[in-house]
């Protein structure tokens, strides 16, 4: 694939042989790390947006089921009187069962088990109302009603995700450094064996920019080749991971998707890496030439 003229072993220099594969490998890793980070990023964002302005009110079933409805109405009356609340929604038994499915299994029937009533409450965007205040207000009038403030555990979860995200960014930064280092080093090593050719071009009367251009365009092509291979290898890997994630996905996990902008960022990686290879080749050759008269 990389040996256009396989009749000559001389053609298979270190630059043409190793650069594309090393770049392919680094791009592969970088794509995976970047994809992971982007997924975490959008997940954390969605969770943050989706749940931080909400509370859930739980009404434990009373000993006497007939009372339950009355208690629910009392709670709703209090909610109506509370100005910080944007809107609320009482969860139907069906929805409740679906939510409980991961823990109870699909077979759990409505009648086997006294279900609590759940009310999803959405607070107004700038609301200062916290779960505890509302909880005290409710408990005073309706025993057995309690408030589950998502923000408490959610903020912990978001913090966890952010930590993982931070780690992923660090890994990404390391991979970026390693990629740059590898590309720079391989390009330089590859050019070392062309030193004599560089000198000949120089002595024939080539301007520095001409000589540098010869090598940098070659490095660009080799870098692109490697980058595209890396991307092609990373693509199926990403899809496989995405597929697995969807299989284990339950109502607990938000959907893991990449947006078009993210795909674009991943697709741009080979180009970025190829440009690094090109700039390195250019600077290396110019440096070599600057030592000549």
């Amino acid at each position: 694939m990389f040996t256009r003229r396989s009749d000559l072993p001389l053609d298979k220099d270190a630059l043409s042989r190793f650069l594309p594969w090393l770049i392919a490998f680094m791009v592969f890793l970088a794509v995976l790390a970047l994809a992971g980070m982007l997924v975490l990023n959008s997940t954390a964002e969605r969770w943050d947006q989706g749940v931080s302005g909400t509370l859930t009110i739980q009404i434990i079933p009373a000993a006497n089921p007939e009372d339950d409805n009355g208690r629910l109405q009392k709670v709703l009356a209090i909610l109506n009187r509370t100005p910080e609340i944007d809107h609320y929604e009482t969860l139907s038994d069906d929805k409740l069962l679906r939510l409980l499915e991961p823990w109870l299994g699909a077979q759990a029937g409505t009648h086997d088990l006294p279900l609590p009533r759940l009310i999803d409450v959405e607070l107004k965007a700038d609301s200062k109302l916290d779960g505890e205040t509302l909880s005290r207000r409710l408990a005073a009038e309706v025993p057995g009603a309690s408030v589950d403030d998502h923000r408490v555990w959610l903020s912990r979860l978001v913090r966890l995700i952010q930590t993982v995200q931070g780690l992923a960014s660090m890994v990404l930064v390391f991979i970026a450094f390693a990629t740059v280092g590898t590309v720079v080093f391989t390009t330089r090593t590859g050019l070392a064996i062309h030193r004599s050719a560089i000198e000949v071009l120089h002595l024939i009367g080539a301007q520095d920019s001409y000589v540098a251009g010869q090598f940098s365009s070659r490095a660009l092509i080799l870098g692109l080749k490697g980058g595209i291979i890396g991307l092609l290898l990373a693509g199926p890997t990403l899809f496989a991971i995405g597929h697995l994630a969807r299989q284990i996905e339950s109502s607990l996990l938000p959907t893991i998707t990449l947006e078009p902008a993210h795909w674009a960022a991943l697709g741009a990686l080979p180009l970025v890496v190829a440009l690094i290879a090109m700039m390195t080749a250019r600077l290396t050759v110019l440096k070599t030439l600057s030592r000549m008269l």
Binding site: L8, D13, V200, I204, G205, A206, Q207
Partner: peptide, 24 residues
């Protein structure tokens, strides 16, 4: 100036001792 040397080199043809052809 260094940038004017290439033009001068182009007016000098050299047959190098070891030829120095570019093998690729």
């Amino acid at each position: 100036p260094r940038r004017e040397l290439p033009a001068m080199r182009r007016r000098v043809g050299v047959v190098f001792q070891e030829f120095r052809l570019l093998n690729h």
